[in-house]
Design a protein around this nucleic acid. Structure first.
Length: 876
RNA sequence: AGGCCCUUAGCUCAGCUGGUUAGAGCGCUACCUUGACACGGUAGAGGUCAGCGGUUCGAGUCCGCUAGGGCCUACCA
């Protein structure tokens, strides 16, 4: 035998050593073999911007559970890891670092800045890898990818060119969401809306040639400098007469038309008059186009006022300009009122600055033709979303999808593969063109915009496999099987992968999507630095071990939010400790190695052994079933209760007398050791996907054939291990033991006091069982003897347990008040239940309509209740 | 405004196609240092399943309404 397990469970002692053992053994790497059934999955690539948080710990734990389970179940398994260049996020972080050093990115220029990011990226990539390794992620690091790798970049250019040639990518001047802080356009879904209490300003616009004024409400008075019309509803009686007249725009003193627009104006809302600012509001932009209104840009791309806004406003920050406009309106007595107003404001999710709608020239993907097949794929079942309720959200978004703004005015990312020749012609091609096909010019400048990060991550499942080349990896491992990710990136990422995958590979990139919930604190609140409830996974791993963290995450993953707190982790850390100690106990007695252990002779097993094998078989069945439907919580819970509640609490206690030589023969002992080894081995293999480190550390001591538990076969349920008789009899023994312990505690006896237990068995087979296995009752219920089918003396406490009449003979008749009250309550409860059962069984509708087993169950229960009531009444 | 989801023990949650006595973890109470484990063992207390109505022989589970909460999308002059 190998050296023994350490006395204390201390994960820090072995987790990193074990990970190195796996990695050097090459167990994470699948074979390149087209014949073997495969299972493949790609990681949602973390951003290269920093430390992994608890959400990463969750998503990667879940993936690793599935991956280890599939690998052990015989699949040629690939888990492909990697990182995302995360355009804006990464550029922002590096920019900030430079600023701390007193350097502006504009000082060093694009090329140098991008070099800086690459340096920074390289360092963080390895940190991310290390952190995933600490978690136990069995990803194939030999295939690690990065979205800016040469191969992946080629895939991006290829897709861009094909979409352009198909007319699905176009360049246009349009109103987009602009972040004045990041100085780039962003797409609609990158805008987050925040409820905010602002002000609603009522501004009077004098009508030219009259004394009448039209009052307009706005939350953004500074944009009035760019107004080019006022609008009313054509059917609004109040304003019919002013349509076609002109109003004076205050401050700017420009004349603007009063127009009618039924789309823009809701006569029920506010004053029914709207100011129209085509350059700085989405709806006004559309209205401007409908009515041929001029566009006046008064705010620039940095959020400052332009010269168009007027001399005294030029260069002012938009919020400063707001104050100044309000002040001037007040002075001119044109401010009709100000009130607090709660509305939602669009901010850029990455930097939290207010979005500025802005007209600019951008690249777009015409998305509707891509969305249609992606909707169909989910609708016809080619892709299954779990939990299914997310499908509604998916359809709702996909069916109302808007064109995707893909260009970003950043330096970090995939540069748009469009080239402009000296004569202004545009050439879109994967490589820089030699000559312009239109004019023959050989001088080109490449588009400076880069692509939205999600454009490249949308190709992730196949670009990482070598596509557009038909590489062996692509042919073997694509499409992938499952995608596991958070619901928060359903639109950003999942939907885009489906659209691109279908269009370019002709296949759905995965057949199942599991969307997990958000990790929250133990009270269900969002984790945030300001609340101080953030749990750092690496700290947890250092304190409690990766296995405890993983198990806690798994057993709380239901498809909704996942509450996580210190006390929970402590609870499952106790479980890992329990596994450790139970294994230590087992290893003290086990004296053969797995690889040389003799076959178990099924016919020679004791009932206790048949029972535990039947139980682990049921657990095995349950775990496999639940893993296949992503019920990580159920699978983990089953293992928890099997190992602790059945294996430790009952089985180990039941075999102790045999192992310690207090009961049975040497043969019995040898067989008990063999079964103990069997159950421990199966348990460790079952538990391995959830807690890979501790199971490996222990399993190594068992001397198995395989070099690692991670490549040992995952147990599958076997029908011949099911044993209803053993479950019935051992179940009865357990209930009897509990009943005796209960009576002992309630009558105030100590564990040293011994009693006699009488058991009545209706048939000889059961009677023989109780005679042969009386040592179980004697030992675990602390009895002096068990009498089978003998008449119990008067005064014994009678009961019916699991269908057997029992009687406990106490050394003296001690009945406490507690006991009397309890018996009364028990009798009353049983009588109530009996009454309702009687009524039920008397009802023909029930006996006729209910399934036979339900009726039979009710009848059996009635018989037991009657017997029990009779016995309990004798105790009074 | 539209959609999705939630309301079950003190706390956080399970309860799969409706079927015996509604479960778990943590917390709580009492007892126990028994030769794997006090990160332990044994026993126990604790629930009108948000409310109302309906379908059914039977509802925590299905349907409708009401109240409260969360999330997403759209809009907000």
């Amino acid at each position: 035998m190998k050296e023994e397990l350490a006395t204390r469970y201390n994960p820090v002692d072995f987790e990193q050593r074990i990970y190195a053992f796996w990695e050097s053994g090459g167990y994470f790497t699948p074979v390149v073999d087209r014949e073997r059934p495969k299972f493949s999955i790609v990681i949602p690539p973390p951003n290269v911007t920093g430390r992994l948080h608890i959400g990463h710990a969750l998503v990667n734990t879940l993936q690793d559970i599935v991956v280890r389970w599939k690998r052990m179940s015989g699949y040629n398994t690939l888990w492909l890891p990697g990182t995302d260049h995360a355009g804006i996020a990464t550029q922002m972080v590096v920019d900030r670092k430079l600023t701390e050093r007193g350097i502006s990115r504009f000082d060093i220029g694009r090329e140098k800045f991008v070099e800086e990011i690459w340096k920074w990226k390289e360092q963080h990539r390895s940190e991310i890898k290390d952190q995933l390794a600490r978690l136990g992620a069995s990803a194939d690091w030999r295939r690690e990818r990065f979205t800016l790798d040469e191969n992946l970049s080629r895939a991006v250019r290829h897709v861009f060119v094909r979409l352009y040639e198909d007319g699905l990518i176009y360049r246009d001047i349009a109103m987009v969401n602009w972040c004045p802080f990041c100085r780039t356009a962003i797409s609609d879904i990158e805008v987050e809306y925040r409820e905010r209490t602002g002000k609603l300003y009522n501004i009077d616009y004098p009508i030219e040639g009259t004394t009448r004024r039209l009052t307009v409400a706005t939350t953004r008075p500074e944009t009035m400098l760019g107004d080019t019309a006022l609008a009313v509803h054509p059917d609004d009686e109040r304003y019919k007469d002013v349509i076609g007249q002109t109003a004076t725009l205050p401050i700017a003193n420009r004349q603007i038309p009063i127009i009618a627009d039924p789309i823009l104006v809701d006569p029920e809302f506010g004053t029914g008059v709207v100011k129209v600012t085509p350059s700085h509001d989405k709806n006004d932009y559309e209205a401007g186009k409908r009515n041929n209104l001029p566009q006046l840009q008064v705010i620039d791309e940095t959020g400052h006022m332009t010269s168009v806004a007027g001399k005294e406003f030029e260069g002012l920050d938009r919020f400063e300009a707001r104050k100044k406009v309000v002040q001037q309106l007040e002075e001119q007595r044109l401010l009709a009122g100000v009130k607090d107003y709660v509305h939602s404001v669009g901010v850029h999710g990455k930097c939290d600055n207010d979005i500025e709608p802005m007209i600019s020239r951008q690249w777009f993907v015409k998305i509707e033709p891509l969305a249609r097949p992606a909707i169909d794929a989910v609708r016809n079942g080619a892709i299954e979303i779990v939990p299914q309720s997310w499908e509604a959200t998916y359809f709702n978004w996909m069916e109302n999808i808007h064109d995707w703004t893909i260009s970003r005015q950043l330096w970090w990312g995939h540069r748009v593969p469009a080239y402009y020749c000296a004569n202004g012609h545009t050439v879109v091609s994967e490589e820089e063109p030699k000559a312009c096909p239109e004019c023959g010019s050989e001088s080109f400048t490449q588009e400076t915009d880069v692509l939205d990060t999600w454009f490249s991550s949308g190709l992730w499942p196949f670009s990482t496999m070598g596509w557009p080349e038909k590489t062996p990896d692509y042919e073997i491992f694509y499409p992938t099987d499952v995608l596991i990710t958070g619901f928060d990136i359903l639109f950003f990422w999942v939907a885009r992968m489906i659209m691109f995958g279908l269009r370019f590979t002709g296949k759905a990139p995965f057949s199942q999507v599991f969307l997990h919930g958000l990790v929250r604190d133990e009270h269900g609140d969002k984790m945030s630095k300001s609340k101080g409830n953030v749990i750092d996974p690496i700290t947890v791993i250092e304190e409690s071990g990766a296995d405890a963290l993983r198990f806690t995450l798994a057993i709380n993953t239901t498809g909704r939010d996942i509450p996580l707190g210190k006390s929970r982790i402590a609870g499952y850390s106790a479980f890992v400790n329990k596994i450790w100690n139970a294994s230590r106990f087992a290893l003290m007695h086990i004296d053969v190695e797995l690889k040389s252990a003799p076959q178990i002779d099924r016919d020679a097993l004791s009932i206790v052994e048949r029972w535990i094998l039947s139980r682990i078989n049921a657990a095995t069945n349950d775990v496999n079933k639940n893993l296949s439907i992503f019920r990580f919580d159920e699978a983990a819970s089953t293992l928890y209760h099997f190992f602790w509640g059945e294996f430790c609490d009952w089985y180990i206690e039941m075999v102790k007398p045999v192992l310690l030589g207090k009961h049975g023969s040497e043969d019995d002992k040898r067989r008990a050791k063999r079964v103990l080894l069997e159950v421990l081995d199966r348990s460790l293999r079952l538990l391995h996907p959830f807690m890979p480190f501790v199971t490996e550390e222990i399993w190594q001591k068992l001397g198995g054939v395989e070099p690692s538990v991670m490549v040992a076969p995952y147990p599958v349920a076997e029908e011949f291990l099911e044993d209803p008789e053993a479950e019935r009899l051992i179940g009865a023994v357990q209930q009897m033991i509990t009943t005796v312990r209960n009576a002992r505690a309630e009558r105030g006896f100590t564990p040293k006091d011994r009693f006699t237990l009488h058991v009545n068995a209706a048939n000889e087979r059961d009677a023989n069982f109780f005679r042969a296995y009386s040592y179980l009752l004697n030992d675990l219920a602390r009895l002096d003897s068990v009498r089978v089918n003998e008449t119990a003396p008067a005064g014994a406490q009678q009961d019916v347990v699991a269908g057997f009449e029992i009687a406990i003979v106490f050394p003296e008749k001690v009945i406490t008040q507690e006991q009397i009250g309890r018996t009364k309550r028990e009798i009353e409860k049983s009588k109530n239940e009996l009454a309702s059962l009687d009524a039920k069984l008397a009802n023909e509708q029930f006996t006729k309509n209910a399934p036979p087993q339900v009726v039979q169950g009710a009848e059996a229960r009635r018989i037991e209740l009657r017997a029990r009531i009779e016995k309990l009444e004798q105790n009074q």
